[in-house]
């Protein structure tokens, strides 16, 4: 997995609440057996008109946000299905961090498995970042995971919380499965004990 250490980039404002996984990647693009190539269809129904042309009003179609690496979003981002195609699509587009007041649990988890950082902040701080993101490509936001700090284009510093284990995995680019495989002995022991306690399982 790619490491996430420090990111300086353009942030795109998406203030709509409850942006769901069907919006992030509509189901007709789930029929893939690969993880890559979904970026072109991220937000497809908002991003493209019926004839396939770009909807000029959609934020990521505006010149100043085409290179965005950060999304500042409304409440409950990523609600809906468990599809990991949602973070895959965002990552493939180039998004590396999403900032909101809240995320749906499964989406939140899926981000970390793909080197992407979801950050939860209170409304007042989201308001500050939303305003900063509205400045477009003239403004760069910096996210420092080690220090757990976001610095706005004006130099305002906002601290954020992150789960220690998830932070460690992102900073080191660690693969969860490899880590768990190292605990094979503990899994063996659990299975032996569980087979006695609950043989019907």
């Amino acid at each position: 997995m790619e490491k996430f250490e420090k990111l300086t980039g353009i942030a795109a404002p998406m203030p709509l609440v409850n942006i769901d996984t069907d919006m992030i990647i509509p189901k007709n693009f789930l029929k893939t057996i690969k993880r890559t190539g979904l970026g072109v269809n991220a937000f497809a129904e908002m991003r493209y008109n019926d004839d396939g042309s770009e909807n000029p009003d959609f934020v990521l179609n505006k010149d100043q946000y085409r290179q965005a690496q950060i999304i500042v979003a409304g409440d409950n981002f990523g609600c809906g299905s468990s599809r990991e195609h949602a973070p895959w699509a965002l990552a493939d587009f180039g998004i590396k961090a999403v900032i909101s007041t809240s995320f749906a649990d499964i989406f939140f988890n899926n981000c970390f498995k793909n080197g992407m950082l979801p950050i939860v902040l209170p409304q007042e701080q989201i308001d500050v970042l939303m305003k900063d993101s509205e400045k477009g490509s003239n403004a760069r936001m910096t996210i420092d995971l080690e220090a757990q700090e976001i610095t706005t284009s004006d130099g305002e510093v906002i601290k954020f919380d992150v789960d220690a284990f998830k932070k460690h995995c992102l900073l080191e680019g660690l693969d969860d499965i490899g880590l768990t495989m190292n605990k094979a002995a503990a899994i063996d022991t659990f299975e032996t004990q569980a087979a006695q306690a609950r043989p019907w399982v």
Binding site: S82, N114, D176, L179, M181, I187
Partner: peptide, 23 residues
């Protein structure tokens, strides 16, 4: 019982476990 992403599907297939924090 709960939903998981595809990376976690692979994790469960390989290890029959999930890395979880309690809700």
């Amino acid at each position: 019982a709960h939903g998981i992403g595809t990376s976690e599907v692979e994790h469960v297939l390989a290890t029959q476990t999930l890395i979880q924090s309690k809700s």
